[in-house]
């Protein structure tokens, strides 16, 4: 896996408006500049928050990316939990899930 390259892609995308435009118009072209596995490239192309979380992407850049994709906050949390269900525990990095997957905010549980 190439977690560094994966996170570098998101770091650039989060701060570069030209990269953001290219991501929407020509994702393959933008992705070709990075050394990624097929799984990683697919996750980025599909905006697969759950898989990116499991692959170990830093939560802060993942959160910015989700906002860029227009994903609402509670949906973002659910997508990460779904990623754990589908793919198993976080494989790398410090952003592992340490709770049982339940919500901590009444605003989420009562929505």
């Amino acid at each position: 896996m190439s977690l560094y390259q994966l996170q570098k892609f998101l770091y650039v995308l989060n701060r570069d408006e030209q990269a953001q435009r290219q991501y929407k118009a020509d994702p393959d072209g933008l992705l070709s500049g990075y050394q990624l596995t097929d799984e990683e490239a697919g996750a980025l192309k599909n905006g697969d928050i759950g898989l990116l979380y499991v692959l170990g992407v830093n939560g802060q850049i993942l959160m910015h990316y989700a906002a860029f994709l227009g994903i609402e906050w509670f949906d973002y949390l659910d997508l990460m939990r779904e990623g754990i269900r589908r793919h198993g525990p976080v494989r790398a990095g410090v952003y592992a899930m340490t709770g049982g997957g339940a919500s901590f905010a009444v605003e989420e549980t009562e929505r």
Binding site: G59, M63, L77, T98, G99, F104, E108
Partner: peptide
């Protein structure tokens, strides 16, 4: 805090 994870809100 455990921000930007499914445990967001854990304190």
């Amino acid at each position: 805090h455990w921000p930007a994870t499914p445990d967001s809100g854990k304190i």
